[in-house]
């Protein structure tokens, strides 16, 4: 079992980690870097609870090997708020009551943030499409979709 030494940026921090080949990015974040905000819901790329951004793109971290992240820039839910100020998607999901059990929330927020980065004015269908890989069993999604709509507006007002 070969160990690979990798360096990468996670939430703006420089990190060095020794990882075995088969370790996923999800495992590395949770078990090596103690960033447990990213959740393991299925480990098969189906539920989206483990979604993080790698080089700006939302991705299932259970479907990425840690070793593939050499030099990558990773953002997890813990990296969304800046200096204690919530990201507009975080604030909006609170405002709209889009959080219940909270287990899908980290992945949902990352998918939403990645969407607004690539498409600051998404249509309702754009939002549905961006979040279709994030399963939620509590909310019924409506409040989450509304929250992303609000976040887009708020972001536009800020810029």
């Amino acid at each position: 079992m070969a160990l690979h030494h990798i360096t990468l940026t996670v939430n703006g921090e420089f990190e060095q980690v020794d990882v075995p080949s088969q370790m996923t990015l999800l495992q590395m974040l949770r078990d090596k870097l103690a960033l447990t905000g990213t959740k393991n819901g299925c480990n098969a790329g189906e539920c989206g609870a483990c979604t993080v951004m790698v080089d700006g793109e939302a991705v299932n971290s259970c479907m990425v090997l840690a070793v593939e992240c050499q030099g990558a820039n990773v953002v997890t839910v813990e990296g969304l708020a800046k200096d204690g100020v919530l990201d507009p998607v975080q604030q909006a999901i609170i405002n709209h009551g889009g959080v219940q059990c909270g287990f899908c929330t980290p992945g949902m927020l990352i998918s939403a943030r990645a969407l607004l980065n690539r498409n600051p004015e998404p249509s309702e269908d754009d939002i549905r499409a961006a979040l279709v890989g994030n399963l939620c069993r509590c909310t019924g999604y409506v409040r989450i979709i509304e929250a992303v709509q609000e976040a887009a507006k708020r972001q536009k007002a800020l810029n």
Binding site: R30, A34, T36, L86, I94, V99, G102, T105
Partner: peptide
């Protein structure tokens, strides 16, 4: 009153601990 959930903030910043998160 529709007050904000008491656990909302820790859930949106990834700080809320679930069983698999305990060390």
């Amino acid at each position: 009153d529709s007050v904000t959930r008491v656990d909302a903030k820790e859930k949106v910043i990834g700080a809320a601990l679930f069983s698999d998160d305990l060390q």
